[in-house]
């Protein structure tokens, strides 16, 4: 979880020599630099994609720049026209409802009532696939999709990058 390490290093003033980065930032950088070549040609059926912005990475972590990177990567991978954004989005996006330990804490009804916001928001896009670049989001989005009878698939980003790699 991006924020936990980032803020941990900061708040407890933990000495370290490395630079702390997100894989999302690197994906975008590598694609821009041509080191990671992707082509959306695979998506002949025009699968529609939307995205979940992990709070810990976006709002609490890097902010809009990483959300922009995330969208850039997805569009490169699935085709610009096949990406449908959610609203609200980026730094103002809703939490999936599983964050902050909610997925582990066990109060399932509350977690799902909370998650209904996310479910409705994702369903409104009409997308076939929701990309969740965070494991916690992944677990929660799968659960609410299942619970509320959604039809979208919940996946990580890397599978699609590999699919588009040339």
């Amino acid at each position: 979880m991006y924020y936990a390490t980032l803020e941990g290093l900061r708040r407890f003033d933990i000495p370290h020599k490395f630079e702390f980065v997100s894989i999302i930032t690197l994906y975008a950088q590598w694609i821009r630099e041509g080191r990671l070549k992707v082509d959306p040609a695979w998506n002949i059926e025009g699968l529609k994609f939307t995205v979940q912005d992990p709070c810990k990475l976006v709002r609490q972590g890097i902010g809009d720049p990483v959300a922009e990177d995330l969208r850039f990567v997805i569009k490169q991978v699935v085709g610009e026209e096949n990406f449908i954004d959610v609203w609200p989005n980026k730094s103002n996006n809703y939490c999936c409802g599983g964050g902050g330990g909610a997925l582990q804490s066990g109060f399932v009804d509350n977690r799902r009532t909370y998650g209904k916001f996310k479910f409705d928001q994702l369903t409104t896009t009409g997308a076939d696939v929701v990309i969740t670049p965070c494991h916690n989001c992944h677990g929660q989005v799968m659960d609410i999709c299942d619970h509320f009878g959604g039809t979208f698939k919940t996946t990580h980003l890397w599978n699609w990058i590999v699919k588009a790699m040339v």
């Binding site: 390490t5 941990g8 933990i14 630079e19």
Partner: peptide, 25 residues
């Protein structure tokens, strides 16, 4: 507890001498 786990990570990465720590999510 939070501090402990982050400190452990930091020590590990520095011990390996990696200049960049990639968080995968």
């Amino acid at each position: 507890d939070w501090e402990y786990t982050v400190r452990k990570q930091a020590e590990t990465v520095d011990a390996l001498g990696c200049p960049t720590y990639i968080n995968t999510e």
